[in-house]
């Protein structure tokens, strides 16, 4: 395949960026999207030009490190991560625009690499269950009904990639946050801190500069793990109950 790539290049956090056009030839449809970029980078290196910086680590769709806006869609046209997107999803001769996640809460570090540490700060605010090492009771002492366990699991599948924020017209982090609140809120272990957790997390989310949610649903569509919108509903309900002291 031959492709035209328009890639966002930006030297550093404070530098100006722009879209630069590259042609790549002889791309195999079996390549992953990032392997296609590897090919481009090898060529740039050979030409003495600096390669395009982009994040990836596991390249099997689980670490959440990769993430590109590909022709206007977070992680591209398939329901998967950028690293698991393959070139057979594109047409020969196609022009592909590649941009970083754009959200003020995710400042650009370089080219396609952004800083998602705001997600860590949301987790720091309350995305945990306070249990000290060694103080846990026997695992079977806590029974969890299967429906709750299953819903907790679905929410816990979030890989923290940030595609939800990237896709949301409001650059909102609600799907990510809702996933954590739902994961911990479905479990008996998560109850004692439930009211505190949601308030602290929402406050941090807003403080980090994410937008609010107007229930548009792009986030869930872009989410490679298919985190459903109902986690946002749970998040909202938790906040409402925490506010009105009804937990």
């Amino acid at each position: 395949m031959n492709l035209t790539l328009k890639i966002w290049r930006q030297d550093g956090p404070k530098a100006r960026g722009e879209l630069v056009t590259y042609q790549v030839a002889d791309i195999s449809p079996d390549m992953s999207f990032l392997e296609m970029l590897d090919v481009l980078n090898e060529r740039l290196n050979a030409e003495g030009k600096e390669p395009v910086a982009f994040d990836s680590d596991c390249r099997e769709g689980i670490c959440g490190m990769c993430g590109l806006m590909i022709s206007g869609e977070a992680h591209g046209p398939e329901k998967t991560t950028t690293c698991q997107l393959h070139m057979r999803s594109f047409k020969d001769g196609e022009t592909i625009t590649i941009e970083p996640w754009r959200a003020d809460a995710f400042p650009i570090i370089r080219d396609l690499v952004v800083d998602r540490s705001a997600f860590d700060r949301i987790i720091q605010a309350g995305g945990f269950i306070s249990v000290n090492t060694g103080s846990a009771p026997d695992a079977e002492a806590i029974l969890v009904p299967k429906p709750n366990a299953d819903r907790a699991f679905v929410a816990a599948e979030c890989i923290g990639c940030g595609a939800c924020v990237a896709a949301c017209p409001n650059a909102s982090g609600m799907l990510f946050m809702g996933a954590k609140v739902t994961h911990l809120g479905e479990l008996p272990q998560g109850q004692p801190e439930r009211a505190m957790r949601v308030q602290a997390m929402v406050a941090t989310h807003d403080g980090a500069g994410f937008g609010g949610c107007t229930n548009i649903g792009e986030c869930s569509h872009a989410c490679p793990k298919g985190i459903p919108l109902d986690v946002i509903s749970t998040l909202n309900a938790d906040l409402r109950k925490a506010k009105s002291g009804r937990f």
Partner: peptide, 8 residues
């Protein structure tokens, strides 16, 4: 974004 699709 230079290009943004809204799919959902």
């Amino acid at each position: 974004y230079a290009v943004k699709k809204n799919v959902a």
